[in-house]
Amino acid sequence: GFTKEQQRLGIPKDPRQWTETHVRDWVMWAVNEFSLKGVDFQKFCMNGAALCALGKDCFLELAPDFVGDILWEHLEILQKE
């Protein structure tokens, strides 16, 4: 899971503390893990605080249908851990 990747890359547990690099690493991991298609990494050029502050509607505009939902749900789980 993502926990191993977080440990390997030194990504903080709390997504709100992520840098732009951490956000990119997470999106890249999720794309590979969940076989997601059509993700534009440029749209995720922000730090974790900005990403978490978007709200669901704005977040879902960053990625194609269903893909955004998967990313959003995973981000929500990470914020609760």
Rank of each mutant, 00 (worst) to 15 (best):
D57W: 04
P64F: 01
A50Q: 14
D25Q: 14
W26M: 01
V23Y: 00
E76F: 06
K4D: 11
G1Q: 06
E20I: 09
V67Q: 11
M46L: 10
R16D: 08
D14F: 04
Q7L: 13
A49D: 12
Q17K: 13
P12F: 03
Q7E: 15
Q7R: 12
D14W: 03
M28A: 13
F34W: 12
H22V: 03
Q6A: 14
Q17I: 09
L78P: 04
Q6P: 05
W18I: 00
K56A: 04
K4W: 07
F34C: 04
Q7C: 06
H22W: 01
L9Q: 08
N47H: 08
D69W: 06
T19G: 08
E73D: 15
A53Q: 10
V31I: 11
E20T: 12
M28D: 12
D69M: 11
F59M: 07
F44K: 00
F59P: 00
V31W: 01
N47M: 01
L75C: 00
F66Q: 15
R8H: 10
E61Q: 10
V67I: 08
D69H: 08
D57P: 09
K4G: 11
I70V: 12
I77E: 12
G55Y: 04
K43Y: 05
K4S: 11
L71R: 00
G68H: 03
Q17N: 13
L60F: 10
I11A: 05
A50E: 14
Q6V: 10
K13L: 11
W72F: 10
T21R: 15
D14C: 08
Q42E: 14
C52D: 02
N47P: 14
K56E: 05
R8K: 11
L75H: 01
G55K: 15
W29H: 04
C52Y: 04
D25R: 13
E20L: 07
P12E: 05
E33P: 02
L62K: 07
F66E: 14
M28Q: 14
G68Q: 02
V67E: 15
G10A: 11
Q17L: 10
D69I: 12
K13Y: 06
E61C: 07
D14L: 03
F2V: 06
L51K: 00
C52G: 03
G10H: 10
V27C: 08
L9H: 07
L54P: 02
P15G: 01
V23K: 01
L78D: 04
N32D: 15
R24K: 15
C52S: 07
G10Q: 14
L36F: 08
C45V: 11
E33R: 12
D14P: 02
E61G: 11
S35C: 10
P64T: 07
I11M: 12
Q6W: 09
G55P: 14
S35E: 13
W29M: 03
V23A: 03
